[in-house]
């Protein structure tokens, strides 16, 4: 199993009685491509932060790629995230004032793996980023290009799990289709488990499995 959650509860420390997540049982198998849809503000990002180890669950088992995140320390989780999980957001995926190569290099820096700049360059080429754009601060590139570099950045450490949090929301229709086909090709090629979260149901046809967030998280029903 790539992801296995059992009896997971989470509330932010500022509002300990307001249970944001309450998940009885939910799992994703290896190399599965899962689309999770639901309205914004429903706790989707919180779930993703739990899975990446940015947040720590109050109770329950969080099993990601065969490791128990809930029993790890903060430093171990940072390390685990750098080495095993790729992450793409809706926006602010890149440090705007450094160039594409540095952005990818930076992501690489926190992992244990050895890689060459050749690898970065071939990644950028495979995402159709022209060589002339490699050394510009990414803040000056188009949003479409930035999101494609974000995939490259998320893939540089060869993660087993890729988490995408509304990555297409800031793209127009054309860019969105390009982005999706490049993303899907990339995850298939590298045999990566993909967890894709969005409110845009029209993206569901790219995926083999579609879950409604409201079915995963039962916190709303109990409180």
């Amino acid at each position: 199993m790539a992801i296995q959650l059992n009896d997971v509860r989470f509330a932010y420390p500022e509002a300990p009685n307001d249970c944001v997540l309450n998940i009885k049982s939910w799992s994703v198998s290896d190399q599965e491509h899962v689309f999770v849809h639901g309205p914004s503000g429903g706790g989707k990002s919180t779930l993703l932060n739990l899975l990446s180890g940015m947040l720590d669950a109050n109770a329950g088992q969080v099993n990601v790629l065969g490791q128990r995140l809930d029993s790890m320390g903060a430093r171990q989780r940072d390390h685990f995230r750098a080495n095993h999980i790729g992450y793409i957001f809706q926006q602010f995926n890149l440090v705007p004032y450094i160039d594409a190569i540095d952005n990818i290099q930076l992501a690489h820096q926190f992992s244990n793996q050895q890689s060459l700049s050749d690898e970065i360059k071939s990644l950028l080429s495979s995402f159709h980023i022209p060589q002339s754009e490699w050394h510009k601060p990414v803040g000056r590139l188009s949003i479409g290009q930035q999101q494609r570099i974000a995939i490259a950045r998320a893939m540089i450490n060869k993660p087993e799990l890729l988490i995408a949090d509304e990555p297409t929301s800031s793209l127009d229709h054309n860019n969105r289709d390009n982005f999706m086909s490049e993303l899907m090709a990339m995850v298939s090629e590298h045999r990566v488990t993909l967890l894709f979260v969005s409110h845009d149901m029209s993206l569901a046809n790219y995926f083999g499995r579609t879950d409604a967030f409201s079915e995963i998280n039962t916190s709303g029903e109990h409180n």
């Binding site: 940072d78 995230r81 602010f92 440090v95 705007p96 926190f110």
Partner: peptide, 15 residues
């Protein structure tokens, strides 16, 4: 956002 991003790609807080 920059700080959040650095955290997500694995930067520890002391970084």
């Amino acid at each position: 956002y920059e700080i959040h991003l650095l955290r997500v790609i694995g930067a520890p807080p002391w970084f």
